[in-house]
Design a protein around this nucleic acid. Structure first.
Lengths: 354, 354
DNA sequence: TTGTACGCGTTATCAC
DNA sequence: GTGATAACGCGTACAA
């Protein structure tokens, strides 16, 4: 594969190098005939802009960094979450001609985000799967203090300058519990995920809001904690089964835990939704495949990824200083009604935006 | 965040710019004192090498492309596969100071890999999830004809110059079926995955080899086809249940299908391994979590990703022409014995390399 | 062991 | 509309 450069194209087209650049970047006015000459020459020589040289001249890498937590042999994301978010980000960067640089961080140590920018490896980055543990908050704090363009996905930090794209989990949790109340539940438990994620406490806030609106007091003894894995859902089954006499519904903070919980409860002869109505969270692929299919809160991961990437690219592309404020977007979730909540009309696949 | 350049470091350290470069790249002999001066100055000024300028001067992007199939709202990979492979690749590139550029392709159209190299966006790439359908083989063929450095993961193409890293699925399939034979099975069915993947036919070859060695004829009527999804495993349950009278064991080409199949068989009152012994494939996270835990063939995805990346980086880094031949590596799988195959000693977690 | 000098292929700013 | 040309920051061959 031979690499052609601009000079050769200019020579063949009989124009200057500057003209070649203008044509290929679609900048400034140009005669149609010149444009055609250049495009023709480029095609003949198999010429395409050299991305590295271009980045160098512009002083930008043209890459958006996506940073994921990674510990070998530990899998933090579901396929659904991962694939949707990355897909959304990928779509946005492709449209803008940007690259998607994948980076792994060790969540237990302070990650040097700033170096990524200083070495010009990325122009901006999206942080996935961040939690509120000390090493992570410290990493993010440094990013924010340098006022670099970045966006944390679905996790909030109490530090100014931290941009984020998130789903409205307070509303999501509220909608889930409201739905259970609408099904006639009076004693609604809650299996939440790890407390180091802000979205866990958000869901809890929604749970509490819905109950208090219904005049039901919060009963801490029926609030359980898992870690978003299916195994933790299975483990929670012991406690839930023990408390079954004072439960008629349960809100579970993600689909995977719900699936584990349901499996174990069934082993013990407790039917969902017959004995216990359940609403889960995420609307992952598995939600519609399990028995029973899960009533769950759909989270628009694809759109969230796309939005985060788009917003970042706007900020690093535009010269307007006003558009450089931290991203702060909150997307709405959607209730997908299926069988697990015992809804009459579940077969219809009813859904409403929460 | 201020960007410092080499000139400033040179001035502060009282040396030439070339010396700064040499120190930072660890090239050539240098006086310890000079080295310290330079490192000190760099630290004071918060200087780090500019990756873009560096790439430009070297004429290489410094990126390894990883190309995945992607159609929005369709999830092709399990978390396990995806996360392990990417993790392995990520580890290798990080060690070499390379970047990991993630790219999505539409499997139904011919993907222009060559342009990635021509525009110098990547120096090499790894193709994940390739299948044998026409558009994919054509894309890969073009890559091979230009003799560009690339590696296809776990899929073989009948075209010279196509490098690949794969697991030995013939042996894997053989080992799986051999284990069932060792458990006393005489009538072993096979639920295979989509035929457009070469690894499907490889597993089948292993299945046939083990049976023929045992003097058992292949019975096409107990070879079933799914598409590696859990749903397809569930669907296969109908046929398997129907044929149950002439089955005492089954080999399933991945864990996800096995899980779906087992779920459905249980619904019909068919116990695994009581009534039907089963060996699955992949040793994904789920394998040890389901009931029963799966006897399965462990595939070293992490190592495969790492190896592919390392081999590619060697090829694009070394000047030796001899080291530019297509990658051709085959890694061994490992039998993990758990409960689903009815092995006596399953609790011990016995495993042997296949 | 260190310094000098040039080139890499663009972008962007002028002048025409 | 188009052409000339100065950056951009680094790698490296060669000289010293």
């Amino acid at each position: 594969m031979t690499l052609t450069n601009r000079k050769e194209v200019a020579k063949l087209a009989g124009v200057s190098e500057a003209t070649v650049s203008r044509v290929l970047n679609g900048i400034g006015p140009m005669k149609e005939s010149t444009k055609l000459k250049v495009l023709d020459a480029a095609k003949q020589l198999n010429y395409e802009l050299n991305a590295v040289a271009s980045s160098f001249a512009r002083g930008r890498s043209g890459n958006l960094g996506v940073v994921l937590p990674h510990v070998p042999k530990v899998h933090l994301f579901s396929t659904y979450y991962f694939s949707e978010l990355l897909g959304g980000i990928g779509e946005a960067v492709r449209q803008k001609g940007y690259g998607l640089l994948l980076l792994f961080r060790d969540p237990t140590t302070v990650f040097d985000y700033v170096s990524l920018y200083r070495t010009q490896r990325v122009d901006a980055c999206i942080v996935l799967g961040a939690s509120g543990i000390a090493s992570e908050t410290e990493s993010i704090r440094r990013l924010a203090e340098e006022a670099l363009p970045f966006c944390v996905m679905d996790q909030s930090f109490n530090h100014r300058g931290v941009g984020s794209v998130a789903a409205d989990h307070v509303r999501g949790g509220y909608t889930a519990v409201k739905h259970l109340l609408d099904q006639g539940c009076k004693h609604i438990g809650f299996l939440n995920g790890s407390p180091q994620y802000s979205n866990s406490s958000d869901r809890r806030a929604g749970y509490e809001k819905a109950l208090s609106e219904a005049g039901i007091a919060i009963d801490e003894s029926i609030v359980y904690e898992g870690n978003y894995s299916r195994t933790s859902g299975k483990r929670a089954a012991d406690a839930v089964y023990r408390d079954l006499h004072r439960l008629d519904g349960i809100f579970v903070a993600n689909d995977r835990m719900a699936i584990g919980l349901i499996q174990e409860l069934r082993e013990r002869g407790c039917d969902v939704p017959g004995r216990l109505k359940l609403v889960a969270y995420d609307d992952s692929d598995a939600a519609s495949l399990t028995e029973p299919p899960l009533t769950t809160i759909k989270v628009p991961f694809f759109d969230m990824g796309k939005l985060a990437a788009e917003q970042l690219l706007i900020r690093i592309t535009s010269k307007e200083q006003g558009e450089k404020s931290p991203i702060n977007e909150k997307l709405q979730t959607e209730l997908k009604v299926r069988k697990s909540s015992g809804h009459l009309n579940a077969a219809g696949g009813e859904s409403r935006t929460s």
